[in-house]
Design a protein around this nucleic acid. Structure first.
Length: 215
DNA sequence: CACCAGGCAAGTA
DNA sequence: TACTTGCATGGT
């Protein structure tokens, strides 16, 4: 008997897209803004991230050079609304240093690196784990990788597609191996999953009106 | 008031 | 290897 996973995933995607419409991710003007936002949003509500981004923009600090030159404590204060500001300031500094050191601060060089190598290298940066690395690859560099987050786990678990002890990599492969490897599809799908999670799949699930009801 | 958000690293046994 | 804990603001 053949696997029904591809059809189920595609139906899930279509249901979510019909219900919510396109999400237009990532909400940022430049790749660098995506990358900084990817760190700021770690375990944090996007509303708080926006406040931090506004501060950075207000001071013209969303460039490689500005972030590179910016004093650590000043950076921490500007991103304060996003929470964990000392941790995140260090992580942003680590990411900026990674680009400056490995690509001579040349963004176009950074953009040319092969996806596999770039992912490996990003994961060596302290503060960049699998979700942040994949968010950068998908939303800043437009590479066809699938991003997994807590909502993805929660929703697929709730609908009995996966077991409790599924790890990041195997869950990521579930999508990659069972769907067209399309950057636009992966972009939209992950965004829709997050939107669904925020709306219906919190700790107290609101299953009424959820587009995945009886999916 | 308690709970949680688009994680990750470091510490412990 | 498998748990646990620290990080922190702002919305509901």
């Amino acid at each position: 008997m053949q696997s029904l996973i591809p059809q189920r995933l595609m139906e899930m995607y279509e249901r979510l897209l019909s219900h919510f419409g396109p999400q237009f991710w990532w909400p940022a003007e430049t790749p660098l803004e995506v990358m900084v936002g990817a760190i700021l949003t770690q375990n944090t509500n996007w509303n708080n991230v926006e406040k931090a981004i506004i501060n950075l923009k207000k001071n013209n600090h969303l460039t490689l050079k500005a972030l590179s030159d910016l004093d650590f404590n000043d950076l921490a204060q500007e991103i304060r609304p996003a929470g964990y500001y000392n941790v995140k300031a260090r992580r942003i500094k680590n990411l900026i240093r990674f680009i400056v050191d490995n690509f001579q601060g040349d963004f176009s060089l950074f953009l040319k690196e092969k996806t596999i190598t770039l992912r490996e290298n990003l994961l060596t940066v302290k503060g960049i784990g699998p979700e942040t690395a994949d968010s950068i690859l998908l939303y800043a560099l437009k590479r066809p990788v699938f991003v997994i987050d807590t909502y993805t786990h929660r929703i697929l678990r709730h609908h009995n597609i996966i077991s409790e002890e599924e790890n990041y990599h195997s869950l990521q492969n579930l999508f990659i191996d069972n769907m067209p490897k399309d950057q636009c599809l992966f972009n939209e799908f992950h965004a829709l999953i997050v939107q669904t999670g925020k709306t219906f799949c919190k700790k107290k699930p609101k299953c009424d009106d959820c587009p995945l009801y009886q999916w």
